[in-house]
Design a protein around this nucleic acid. Structure first.
Ligand SMILES: [Mn+2]
Ligand SMILES: [Mn+2]
Ligand SMILES: [Zn+2]
Ligand SMILES: [Zn+2]
Lengths: 124, 124
DNA sequence: TATCTAAATGCAACTAAGTTGCATTAAAGT
DNA sequence: ACTTTAATGCAACTTAGTTGCATTTAGATA
């Protein structure tokens, strides 16, 4: 789905800041933080956070906190869980892991923490 | 296990601040944040964070970030996952949920996010 | 038990992610 | 083109957590 369509579908104004932000998020293969892209974007950080917040309200973007106390954002595609490595802090999207069901609860998001594949191999 | 034994086993100095802190953490049934206990403790916040950090280095305490952007700490007992409610922000320890295994990864901690039992019941 | 030393503490200053108020600008409907 | 309302930039603010430094204390040694 195209960026302009995503924005129009939610009846949001298509501003240049939003286009720029969504383009970067759309290209990214991993969730990214403000820190990650602050040098690539033209907008002020207030604009970044306000737009991210609006995207989240409109279910265009979702986010979670990582080990480094920063928030990471990604375009909402098919629901999936994430793995955060305690050693190298890398975040991986786990597309093929079906989230465990918990009776009585509604599980929306699952974050696994531990040691990732490549860190495990390094320490053999 | 007694607090004094835990500290001695790791060859840490048994200071009054550490005793106070570990006693509170040990009694707590849930993970707690600095905000939660700052009024109950005598030590400075720098001392709190330095001691928590030392406890984590020595595997006495573990922690994770919650929805409210605060870090929550608990005495490391049997490994278990946690549920964080997006509605009421309550944190629950899930003692009886065995964490999913991911081939190639070492899963140390799993955080489920979503809607907790009581919030689900309220919205029937 | 008095002395010694490294580690722990309190305090204040700092950092950095994220938020907010306000004046200005720009999107998009007419 | 005109108008309205939402979006933006900027600066000031908030707050969890960190750090430097002078002082204190645990606990080892004599
Ligand atoms: Mn993802
Ligand atoms: Mn727990
Ligand atoms: Zn890793
Ligand atoms: Zn709840």
């Amino acid at each position: 789905m195209k960026i302009t369509d995503i924005i129009e579908e939610k009846n949001l104004k298509l501003t240049s800041a939003r286009k720029e932000l969504l383009e970067i998020l759309n290209k990214a293969k991993k969730p990214i933080s403000f820190e990650d892209i602050k040098h690539k974007i033209g907008m002020d950080k207030a604009t970044f956070y306000r737009n991210i917040s609006k995207f989240e309200d409109n279910s265009i973007v979702n986010s979670f906190e990582s080990n480094d106390k920063k928030r990471y954002y990604e375009v909402q595609s098919s629901p999936h869980s994430h793995f955060i490595c305690n050693t190298c802090n890398t975040i991986e999207c786990l597309e093929n892991v079906s989230p465990a069901k918990l009776v009585g609860y509604t599980v929306i998001d699952v974050i696994y923490k531990g040691i990732c594949k490549s860190c495990n191999e390094t320490n053999l």
